[in-house]
């Protein structure tokens, strides 16, 4: 659940985003961004999913965000028209994720 593993993951994803951005210059392609966050257990991944899902992206914001939990991994997939909007959404999601992780560290593990 450490944030280090996430940032390592993030670096890889950032490279992927850079490729997508360059692709966008040639065609009317959407930008994409994937994030996988491993949790200690399936239960914790599901808690994070339920905590982070309810607040939707603005409908006309030119961005969509999908969250799913598969096993102990929380996966997030963004698609956006512009890199600027994508950066803001990913940035604020990481703040939110960090707070959920801190809450789990301070008051977890979940009762069975």
């Amino acid at each position: 659940m450490s944030l280090k593993s996430i940032s390592a993951n993030m670096l890889k994803k950032k490279k992927k985003m850079a490729e997508d951005v360059s692709g966008n210059n040639h065609a009317q392609q959407m930008l994409g961004f994937n994030l996988d966050v491993p949790f200690p257990s399936e239960r914790e991944a599901s808690i994070a999913l339920n905590s982070l899902s309810p607040d939707r992206e603005p409908r006309k914001g030119g961005i969509t965000k999908e969250l799913v939990a598969v096993g102990n991994v929380l996966s997030v997939r963004w698609t956006a028209d512009e890199a600027r909007v994508l950066r803001v959404s990913v940035g604020s999601f990481l703040d939110h994720l960090a707070l959920v992780l801190e809450t789990m560290e301070a008051f977890g593990p979940p009762i069975s």
Binding site: S51, H96, L99, V100, T103, M104, F107, P110, I111
Partner: peptide, 19 residues
């Protein structure tokens, strides 16, 4: 919006952790 989300995130997580 932003402050409300912050507080809601912690409330949702705690409610689930504590059942």
């Amino acid at each position: 919006g932003a402050p409300l989300v912050t507080v809601a995130l912690v409330a949702r997580t705690l409610a689930q952790l504590w059942g």
